[in-house]
Design a protein around this nucleic acid. Structure first.
Lengths: 166, 166
DNA sequence: TTTATCTTTCACTATTTATTGAAAGTTTAA
DNA sequence: TTAAACTTTCAATAAATAGTGAAAGATAAA
């Protein structure tokens, strides 16, 4: 397989993966494009490579920066901004986990906490309360686990998991 | 807070969570509705509660059954099908993890394996190969962890997790 | 069988989400 | 300052996704 061909397939696959996890296709494609290329790319490079508009390229590089997956890169003597993806896969995973915890897990926990005080005591109400409680405990635990994962260095977490699951 | 009010909020929150994880809103709403109700509900009940069409209700209950999150339930003397959600949160999480591993992780691993044989040896090609390799190793490891998680019984995993977190 | 009850399918429509591109905004060098 | 080089915004539009409902397909009691 040729390198360019492989890059294209990778961009394709990564884009598809993103969209089945609720991340928009362009955002994951840009991420893949930057991962596939060592040198920093400009907005124009991205527009050309993925055949997308300036606005789209801008919005999504910005989103990737917010997610901590991509960094701006200045090249001396050039006024344009360039972009590079982080090189470490575990660091990337940590960044994604951290971001999703903040955006999705935390709101759910909050929401479940609000549902805890139901003034009824019928059998039905008790059973509902129990489920909400279980769900709450579960999400709190997962959230804690993700927190540990995002805070500690990769080796610590990895060793623990191996111990746990090996 | 009143029970009915709480149920509605829960359905709302669960639906929103689903859609930020690439699962359609109706599917997660039906799941939430069934979780919130102890008794089995019929398609008609679901249609009425969520104000959706028969086709939609049917498609999404079917999807939930495929995912292993909901079971059919026959009530003696009634020809209608009824549906119930599983009651155990950990079992639910296992089922979701299992399903997503199959649908999303496995295809990515396969795709990354295909990208491994690049005929070029330039510095650029080598660097790309390394990244693909790292990504491959990472996904294989995660996939293994998920597999362990979905295979073992809850108490075992739960105890280990507590040990890890504590 | 026949018929009533219930389930599934799918072409069409509605809704949501992503993308464009041109205009407004910003920065920097002269 | 001014103006060129570049970035950002956002209303309009396109594309993707989800939902509808009526018709066709099952199933089972009579």
């Amino acid at each position: 397989m040729k390198l360019e061909e492989a890059k294209e397939e990778f961009i394709q696959a990564w884009g598809a993966l993103g969209s089945s996890w609720g991340i928009n296709r362009t955002m994951s494609s840009i991420h893949a494009l930057l991962m596939a290329n060592n040198e920093p790319l400009s907005t124009e490079d991205i527009m050309a490579a993925l055949q997308i508009s300036r606005g789209n390229a801008n919005m999504n590089t910005r989103a990737l920066i917010e997610w901590g997956l991509v960094k701006k890169h200045r090249i001396a003597g050039d006024r344009k901004e360039f972009f590079v993806a982080g090189k470490d896969v575990w660091e990337m995973a940590r960044q994604i986990a951290k971001e999703r915890r903040k955006r999705e897990l935390n709101p759910v926990i909050e929401s479940l906490e609000n549902l805890k005080d139901i003034e009824e005591n019928s059998e039905e109400a008790e059973s509902f309360k129990k489920r909400i409680n279980d769900l709450h405990d579960f999400t709190v635990e997962i959230s804690g686990l993700v927190d540990k994962f995002t805070r500690n260095d990769r080796n610590w977490f990895y060793r623990s998991l191996l111990k746990l699951l090996g």
